[in-house]
Design a protein around this nucleic acid. Sequence first.
DNA 1: ATAGGGTTAG
Length: 491
Amino acid sequence: MGKGSKMLEKCGKVGRGRKYYRLAGASNGEGVEQPSDGSIAKLVLESEWAVEVEEALWKGRIEWKAELVNKVLKRLWNHGPKALQFFKHLDRHPTYIHSPSSFHHAIDIAARMHDYNSAWAFFSRMRSLRCGPSPKSFAILAERYASNGKPHRAVRAFLSMHLHGCPQDLHSFNTLLDILCKSHRVDMAHHLFKTLFSRFKPDAVSYNIIANGYCLLKRTPLALQVLKEMVHRGIQPTLVSYNTLLKGYFRSNQIKDAWAFYLEMQKRKCQIDVVTYTTMIHGFGVAGDVKKSRRVFHEMVKEGVVPSVATYNALIQVLCKKDTVENAVLVFEDMVTEGVCLPNLVTYNLVIRGLCHVGDMERALGFMGRMEEHGLRPSVQTYNVVIRYFCDAGEIEKGLDMFGKMGDGSCLPNLDTYNVLISAMFMRKKSEDLVVAGKLLIEMVDRGFLPRKFTFNRVLDGLVITGNQEFAKEILRMQSRCGRIVRRLKL
DNA sequence: ATAGGGTTAG
């Protein structure tokens, strides 16, 4: 990390206050060392002018590789406009050509910001470079359409694949069904499933996807019906089908049914696997029956099924929520000493949340520091948890400090971060806090996030009440640029 | 990135 940032030199101000940047390559005797993805991301974030980025990126003797580009895009994930700026400039590079995976990141980022024009332009660009688009490209776009509340456009995009030289097969059909189900449009998915039945000949995967969709909606009778129909059509349910329904019972709080189903699975000699056990541990725990969770955990070990990280994470979450965080920490330490599987980012986030929840911020921060022992860095979710609990405890300054630590480098704030902080700015009833809230609102829009109407209105009200009329007007103008309905406001 | 288990909003 350190090496990379040293190679990035900011060469002072030249001319009309314009900063020039140079990405220096440090010679180490064996050749030229490359700047890190972190230093490149930082350069893109700091430069204000497009030309600066272009010069630095092209003339910096950087040996571009798809892997490096993808890493940079991931670092800029929560600053969509900058990410696309970087991608588009590099697309004009004299020799470097973007890889399909980088195009996919760019499509994802553009579509997330509702910038479908750019997204589709990337499709055309891929086509003219003869490197796509592939079914995966369509899956990415369709998922964004669906999660942005435009499921019909997702379907249309997917069904137009063949016009772009992509095969339309059962594979891609299943992907579309899954996308619709995961965005809770199970009705639409099931309808499509029936309509295009003879064209695609659904398989076990298709049925499992629809069944899972109904489970997500807590409609287990319908899920069961789908699986029965599958049997009727001569397709055998798989272990995935059973695990899906088991999870569905827990989700809709049918604990007795879940238990009965589990016993039935054992009786029928299904090869119960680690997923089944993890589902049971999580399900019982969330329902408040920690004893049963532990019992299932031991039963699993007795049966010779090796717990995965997800199994440990399920247990740790359950202990945090329904038992004590101390016991959760004991399991964490067991993991580390026994080494069957090592804690991952999720594990850390669970323990940190657990500690925050009981008000032990000190220890939570301690775990945050320990993450690098396992080669991990705090994620944006880690920061969000800590910031949220600092703010909830009234320690707004500490929350803002933590936010500041994100700002100076490795982890850009996301929509949740801004929402948490903006809410916190109303707690102290201080005029200055509301100005900060306004600034955060502007910053988040700059970075490609679309605040909810509620957020706009709250900040506007706050600014008006504290007499910041001019600032309120500025935010109002920004709101209309965002396409959010402007509320009548007397100014 | 064709399906099932583990962070997230009370």
